[in-house]
Design a protein around this nucleic acid. Structure first.
Lengths: 208, 208
DNA sequence: CACTTATTGGACGGGAGCGTTTAATTAAAC
DNA sequence: GTTTAATTAAACGCTCCCGTCCAATAAGTG
């Protein structure tokens, strides 16, 4: 029975699919959904326009597939928490550092900028993005702080709120600058010193 | 000599200019720069397309003028600090409340979403927006905290950093949700209680 | 080999929109 | 009333692009 597999055919070229999604990302992020050109995407991917329409039926589908793919990639690049035992301050500083590096990377900033605009027309993609990125990071942070509160290293408090305070005070005004100014320039504004200052204030506010 | 004034002509209809800018705002925010249609803008403003081209030479100029106009309006709507003497905590809570209401208003969220995308193509407009909004609010906050430190009501510290911590921890994750989720839904997540909690933690971290 | 599917290039119909031009109209200043 | 500039409607040339169709070719399986 061949387990339902089709019997005689030319297989899909996976490399082409990946190339299409990559080109789609560049095109959509460069021009936005409305003005992105499928013909340019096809050209950039070295693929016939018909091939694109065979796999994704229309622009909407291609866009959704691209966002899904990018979210999957982003998920894999999220900063992780190390399992090693280390002083609380060190742990927080490390996490904050990784977080800020992640959030200030050009790819993420571009994604953030473009998605914000497209969400108005594609609300479901906003949820997809939130779940693949920000909310995951939020959960990690809550988990981590909750754990430390259990251990008595932080004052008992609503871990959800504590996570918001930590996340927010580490970011400060930086994310706004990232989004609306030249990322290169804005990235320089986040120093190790300012990052440690935020952590220290947080520890002060949540000392036992 | 008539002081350089032209002598015989039909004067510009200012009402039409305002209508054009208003329609331009709606159109650009709805579709983004590339896909916005000048013909639709003209129709919405009850104006001939030629009139638009007479005043703003092209799409770019119209867009810039619209952003400038919106920034001027936004500037006028920024939350103000009251001059009355009041307890520090009350002062901070009031400001935080006004700030969050301002930032979560649909107009601002829409502006934020769209500008973030357009900044990639119009970096100078990003600076314009930053100076008209976020950086102004930042300066106000720094000024306010600096003042309280002088008075000894807050621990002496870098007011720039303190402002970032306050601003950030009050926002928490809220702004991310606003940007990528349904604003109606997200707005409900900011309660007076969570706002006061942030202020109280801040006061704890900066107590004398 | 035969068969099936993937992929290609090119062409097409249809629509949209920018920026310009023209000739006519309107509203104020003189 | 004359002059000057603002405004208008309509049309035009141009470019771009979506989504579809077709005939031809490539790359695998049996």
């Amino acid at each position: 029975m061949n387990t339902g597999k089709r019997l005689a055919h030319r297989p899909v070229d996976q490399a082409k699919q990946d190339a299409i999604l990559a080109s789609a990302r560049d095109e959509f992020f460069e021009y936005g959904f409305e003005s992105a050109s499928i013909e340019r995407i096809a050209a950039a991917a070295n693929v016939s326009k018909v091939t694109i329409y065979n796999h994704f039926q229309n622009k909407e589908n291609l866009f959704s597939a691209m966002v899904g793919s990018e979210c999957r990639i982003m998920r894999g690049n999220l900063p992780e928490m190390s399992d090693e035992e280390m002083p609380l301050r060190t742990e927080l500083v490390n996490f904050a550092q990784a977080m800020m590096e992640f959030l200030s990377s050009p790819d993420i900033i571009r994604f953030d900028r473009r998605m914000a605009a497209e969400v108005e027309r594609h609300p479901e993609l906003g949820e997809l993005f939130l779940n693949a990125g920000p909310r995951l990071m939020q959960k990690m942070l809550i988990e981590m702080l909750s754990c430390e509160m259990e251990k008595g290293k932080l004052a008992k408090a609503n871990p959800q709120e504590a996570a918001a305070h930590l996340f927010g005070s580490v970011k400060g005004f930086a994310d706004v600058e990232w989004r609306f100014s030249d990322p290169e320039k804005a990235a320089a504004s986040v120093t190790t010193a300012s990052l440690e200052a935020a952590i220290d204030r947080f520890l002060l506010a949540y000392s036992t």
